[in-house]
């Protein structure tokens, strides 16, 4: 479910059902779509990608009952259409506000995000690495073990040892790192929440 919205559970169920009749598969599509939208808002230099992703899902959810019978094509494209409109709205707001105030006034106010300490980051990294299966942990650490010129031959050697192409290795790493980064972010969020309540 979106983190910062008043999303109603039945609407969310409808939204999942529209993405795919198989609920498990629909959940996986939803998570992937969420990550993709977050990136798109970030690439478009929106100040609050999270909030705008939630807003996208809110807007689609409000129409989902109708959409299930009327929309033809890949539902993901509809989400992208809504996101594109939100980016346009955001840019319009930025243009309106820039002459008067600083850039921070534009759009919805971004969620405050305190900078974590390096100890917190290190603890979250350790915690999340431990959660990874050993094979994946060893692979991701080996992949990022070398820098500059050395990393090219080092990664080619890893791919050769695994019997896969370098591209396939990159994809494998992408998935592991994606999960790892998500875990670290959630862990750091917890630290921030705990710091605030202390």
């Amino acid at each position: 479910m979106p983190r910062n919205s008043d999303f109603q559970p039945e609407r969310f169920d409808d939204l999942l059902a529209w993405l795919d009749p198989d609920r498990e598969l629909a959940s996986s599509i939803y998570l992937n779509l969420r990550q993709s939208l977050l990136r798109i808002f970030a690439w478009n230099q929106c100040a609050d990608p999270e909030g705008m992703t939630d807003e996208t899902f809110d807007r689609v959810a409000r129409q989902v009952k109708t959409l299930r019978t009327t929309f033809e094509g890949n539902p993901k494209l509809f989400f992208y259409g809504v996101a594109k409109n939100l980016v346009k709205e955001y840019r319009k707001k930025v243009k309106l506000h820039v002459p008067i105030e600083a850039i921070e006034l534009a759009g919805d106010p971004p969620q405050e995000l305190e900078e974590e300490t390096s100890e917190q980051r290190s603890e979250c990294l350790n915690r999340c690495l431990r959660r990874l299966p050993k094979k994946k942990r060893d692979l991701v650490l080996a992949y990022y073990a070398k820098e500059k010129q050395a990393r090219i031959t080092h990664r080619a050697e890893i791919a050769r040892r695994l019997g896969i192409s370098i591209e396939a290795l990159r994809v494998r790493i992408l998935r592991i790192r994606g999960n790892l980064e998500e875990c670290i972010e959630l862990c750091l969020d917890e630290f921030v929440i705990n710091d605030e309540t202390d």
Partner: peptide
């Protein structure tokens, strides 16, 4: 593109931490 918002800057710090940790381990 990548250091505008606080969340993006955090992502960069996380990416840096992973690499530094992996290199130290190696």
């Amino acid at each position: 593109q990548y250091a505008r918002g606080p969340r993006q800057r955090r992502k960069l710090r996380i990416a840096k931490s992973i690499r530094e940790f992996a290199q130290a381990e190696a």
